[in-house]
Design a binder for these strands. Sequence first.
DNA 1: ATATATTTTTAGGCAAGTCTAAAAATAATA
DNA 2: TATTATTTTTAGACTTGCCTAAAAATATAT
Lengths: 218, 218
Amino acid sequence: MFTLSEENYLKTIYHLELETNKGISTNAIAEKLATKASSVTDMIKKLSEKEVVIYKKYKGVKLTDLGKKSAANIVRKHRLWEVFLVEKLDFSWDEVHEVAEQLEHIKSSKLIDQLDGFLNFPTHDPHGDPIPDRDGNLKTIEKSLLSTLTKNESGICVGVDDSSSEFLQFLDKKGITLGKKITILDKEDFDDSLSILIEDKKLSISNKIANNLYMKKS
Amino acid sequence: MFTLSEENYLKTIYHLELETNKGISTNAIAEKLATKASSVTDMIKKLSEKEVVIYKKYKGVKLTDLGKKSAANIVRKHRLWEVFLVEKLDFSWDEVHEVAEQLEHIKSSKLIDQLDGFLNFPTHDPHGDPIPDRDGNLKTIEKSLLSTLTKNESGICVGVDDSSSEFLQFLDKKGITLGKKITILDKEDFDDSLSILIEDKKLSISNKIANNLYMKKS
DNA sequence: ATATATTTTTAGGCAAGTCTAAAAATAATA
DNA sequence: TATTATTTTTAGACTTGCCTAAAAATATAT
Ligand SMILES: [Mn+2]
Ligand SMILES: [Mn+2]
Ligand SMILES: [Mn+2]
Ligand SMILES: [Mn+2]
């Protein structure tokens, strides 16, 4: 169906579309894929031929329904494999992305259906990101950045925005993992840093951190 | 390290070398890979550059130690994934090969080590083929073709020579699976067909079948 | 040993995916 | 609005892996 390269472009456009509803620019794609704008233009033409994107010169691209479904399926595979690696093979959440980038391209619908069942139909990956269902639909849960909580509010940590391994390792070091309860003890006005209670430990975290942690208010 | 294509060539040469100890001919490789001799010559030069094969024009190729180790590692991955698919994801033994052909190219030593442990360090794949260890060594067990057993001899079915899905499905239909005890009741001289006892069922099988089943004598 | 057949290599070409440099279109600014 | 800056596209080239057709080497048969 799609080449490895085509799949990577599809996925990138899919992720970019979740952030805006405008057309996705050539440059935006090039940057995410660490490639050149001219290469992107070439590939966009191919994707347009295959009817997974709508392309008008100089106007950027948009995924068609087929394109969205195809991209969601790749994301589904990526996230299911991440769950597998963490749950079954004892990978930590900062190690899975690279391998999942490879595994997401394996072509076998039976494989992914069986894997889904083997993992007990997980709804979220190790970083708190939702796993699309077979039709490409994903149910978004109510979540807010930790930085938007006010003093004395509390919630459960349900996801990360930045899932770079540096950030994830930093969180591990601080004892911040998904599922933990966090309460805002205090907010510093001059640098927006937070004093929080996590489980029963007091911790001080910067605004940058708070901007990358998703909470489910409770 | 190696491209997908290079890995497939390495694996093919590796398998061919297990059958003979002469140099592997260009044509033999071409046939196994369903490609053209000229393409093989091209690739052989690249592999030779990378020092995984010794190549002398018109004389065929031989794997170097590095080449053997690299190839064995791909075979190791292939067979471990086949075990995973059968043991954990309920694939049948005739469905796994195609998917394993893809999975064997995933690059992550942690992945394969953990998978090995997760599967309890299996020594053989679902077709009875040995799984190379991390250093590329494989211990061959004592096994004989069913067709070489004599009347009243018996053994355990431990492997198949042909693992095409047609053959495997045929075996399923006849109730012949690995681990079952088989006794030779009679041999027909004129067509070399066999009358066998499998578990407690009598069965008549052709010489062609008997030539594709490996037994451990008991 | 010579002629014929087969195998292997070389030569040249093609598609995918990438790149650089230059041209064209669009956006931003004075 | 005219000019400058940025973005995007085109043109041409490169690498990988494959192909066909022809040449060269090796093997087989008379
Ligand atoms: Mn990921
Ligand atoms: Mn993830
Ligand atoms: Mn196989
Ligand atoms: Mn096998």
